[in-house]
Design a protein around this nucleic acid. Sequence first.
DNA 1: TCACATTTGTCCGTATGTATC
DNA 2: AGATACATACGGACAAATGTG
Lengths: 233, 233
Amino acid sequence: MKGKPFDPIPRGKRAFEEVAGAIKNTILGRVWSPGERLPSETELASQFGVSRHTIREALRTLELSGLIAIRTGVAGGPVVKDTIMASIGNLYLDAFQMEKISVEEFTGARQAIEKVILDDAFDNAGQEDIENLRRNVAKAKALVAKREIAKDVNFEFHSLLARASKNKVFVILEKTINTIHHDLRSRSPVDFKTTKAAVEAHEMLLDALISKERDKAMSILVKHIAAVRKSYH
Amino acid sequence: MKGKPFDPIPRGKRAFEEVAGAIKNTILGRVWSPGERLPSETELASQFGVSRHTIREALRTLELSGLIAIRTGVAGGPVVKDTIMASIGNLYLDAFQMEKISVEEFTGARQAIEKVILDDAFDNAGQEDIENLRRNVAKAKALVAKREIAKDVNFEFHSLLARASKNKVFVILEKTINTIHHDLRSRSPVDFKTTKAAVEAHEMLLDALISKERDKAMSILVKHIAAVRKSYH
DNA sequence: TCACATTTGTCCGTATGTATC
DNA sequence: AGATACATACGGACAAATGTG
């Protein structure tokens, strides 16, 4: 049992904002961690001293922020999650549509950002990062050998590269890039040839990284992303 | 008068999600543009054939996404806005707290990204961009001469640089960087010396840009951002 | 300045759907 | 299969904010 960390809220801003802020603080402060269940709506309503409707609006904002998920049913209720990156990616999609950003602009930015990430990975990647990348490529090659699509595994390669840069900002940026890439890709079917080419590029990139051939790795990366762009339609 | 672009909604997903999606499409599709007022909650409720409560939850999500703002009072109601960048910035702040991202990591990423932006600005900046940057620096120098804080003007310099890169993705990224920077800065008072140093760095950077001294500009930029980091505390 | 109309903010009560045990 | 504990949605009511005459 976890007690009642919530006090009745004062009325400065809108009530649901106060409630959302209070719950958010308990999540960011690790009072509850991802996976744990928050109290039900009625319970929260009584603890905060507000109506269920107010609680619902607060939970809506937290849900959209990617801090919680809500399940119906008897064992349901608000559960702490950390899908903030996906939420950021969704907002970027909105922004792209509002600003009418082209696939060319996105690809250009992606090339530049991933070059930066790769550059940092050259400086900061440890043995463990190399091993993770090796395993990823091996897994992808195994799938290709069975003529299966290795989409998720290929996404993971770039995430691992970002993690090897040792900068969590790049990890976040890479996740948003993945979200947008995933959205663009979802409009056109993924064919086997594209997957196979990507895996080959990843393998060459990893080899260049291991043998410390920076310029070679950069040129492979740029060509790889340019090839990915062509698969969008 | 603008008619009634909304049809009664079917019940597949949650009702408020359908409503939010429908309204979002009208905004992204420019049926309404920023500044225009959407119908009131009761009006929307009757058009969609749902309760006002459902409409309110839908509007909440759109508000948090930065697509609309809501004002109370007789001339109030939901107004179309485009503050998506601010929303993205806020989510990044959450992510930073969840992942415990350090100021050093943020600064490192900022240096790398702004270097990329500057590099593109060297290739793509037109005469108009140079003029805008010139005017910005002149305005900032005038404020410094009066010993005033030129915070907003200094933010604008980096935005103008992003625009000169001719890639809207960088414009968006720069806005999120500004939001985070603004949050970090808001915790410590802005002193005059920092502002003055920033303006001087901007002027040197612009000179190097005009005289096409790429390496010099890069080194000025990196030092400038490092100096900004020290002003956070 | 003051009353008034409009719109959001909040509350209460009720009914229904849904997932778990 | 049925009871239970949740979220989802509806309707009505009043308070608070805000622009208008």
